[in-house]
């Protein structure tokens, strides 16, 4: 593997001497703080989750604690309808959320990439929800959705819907209501990433396409989209993992309810460990989530051509 920095260039002699004067240990010293922190607070907890997944472990029922083999996993897959429900809901949530975010994000990026009066302001406003936290997003949409003074009241004033409607506590409306709230915050992420990638499309290609008389729609399909392909695939994957993992919004907006309608797998895990103190079972569920994430990260590594960074 040819390391770029090690490739000798003509004025090499002074550097060679200097470089060999640096202690061999220097790079290790430099990564030591990061490596130690990650070993202690990421690697060790991950390993302990694997360990606990094979244990019956519940601080509130210590007399039952002990080695359990694969009991936790068997229970999850054969005897726990909630597990399957949350898994299905997770898939639904991620699929709908990421799909819509990508669609709107792409459209927005294409729009604010045009030259027009007020573009800087337009971009700033469009991107602004990006920095808003999950909890604050929940707070905002709780205000919008509340049954007394929320948006439904004013809609009812003009004859749409009825007074006292609460979209978050009705099982038939809670899914779209939560989706819209998360879209509000999630679309700017895609818009920013895609806009960043749009900056590197060669203008010459469009000029050439125009000379050949290609319409704008054709230019989009044959120049823009192929150029964006890698960025779209990678950001979609990253976002899907992020949407799967992130529990802030659903935890605070719906609490997984009503009637468990909006509980994702990580939310179910959090409830199992925090409320029910069933750490062993929660660890087994976490292990299942890790396997799903591991699969995604392998795909990610393949797509990002890991190891090719040294060229």
């Amino acid at each position: 593997m040819a390391q770029a920095a090690a490739v000798a260039k003509p004025p090499a002699p002074p550097r060679r001497r200097r470089a060999s004067a640096t202690p061999r240990r220097l790079p290790y010293l430099l990564i030591a703080p990061a490596a130690l922190l990650m070993l202690g607070f990421i690697a060790y907890p991950v390993l302990s989750v694997f360990y606990y997944s094979l244990q019956e472990y519940n601080p509130t029922k210590p007399w039952r604690n002990g080695f359990a083999g694969f009991d936790n996993f068997v229970h999850a897959f054969t005897d726990d309808p909630l597990f399957w429900d949350t898994l299905v809901f997770s898939a639904q949530w991620v699929f709908v959320e990421v799909g819509l975010q990508l669609l709107f994000g792409l459209a927005l990026a294409l729009i604010v990439n045009q030259t027009f009066v007020g573009r800087a302001l337009g971009r700033a406003l469009v991107f602004s929800p990006w920095a808003v936290s999950g909890v604050l997003t929940s707070a905002i949409w709780v205000l919008l959705y509340n049954s007394q003074t929320g948006i439904t009241r004013y809609l009812a004033d003009v004859g749409i819907g009825s007074y006292g409607t609460s979209w978050l506590s009705d099982t038939s409306t809670v899914f779209p209501a939560a989706i819209v709230a998360d879209l509000w915050r999630g679309v700017p992420f895609f818009a920013i990433l895609i806009l960043a990638d749009l900056q590197s499309v060669s203008k010459d290609l469009y000029e050439a396409a125009e000379v050949d008389g290609a319409s704008r729609i054709k230019q989009f399909w044959h120049i823009t989209l192929p150029h964006l392909k890698d960025a779209i695939v990678l950001s979609t994957l990253l976002r899907a993992v992020w949407e799967f993992n992130n529990v802030d919004l659903l935890y605070t907006l719906t609490g997984g309810g009503p009637a468990g309608e909006t509980t994702t797998l990580p939310l179910y895990i959090a409830n199992t460990s925090v409320d029910a103190h069933n750490f062993g079972y929660a660890s087994a569920l976490t292990t299942v989530a890790f396997v799903i994430l591991l699969f995604c990260s392998m795909v990610y590594l393949r797509l990002s051509k890991f190891g090719g960074e040294d060229k």
Binding site: A5, V46, V49, L238, A270, V274, A289, G307
Partner: peptide, 28 residues
């Protein structure tokens, strides 16, 4: 620098991005 565990360290960094803090609450 080019050092022995560089690739392993890079791999650890890339993979850690997928480890959700929310799932490690109890061990943490």
């Amino acid at each position: 620098f080019n050092f022995k565990i560089k690739r392993a360290f890079m791999l650890a960094l890339l993979c850690s991005q997928f480890v959700p803090g929310a799932l490690l609450l109890v061990p943490l």
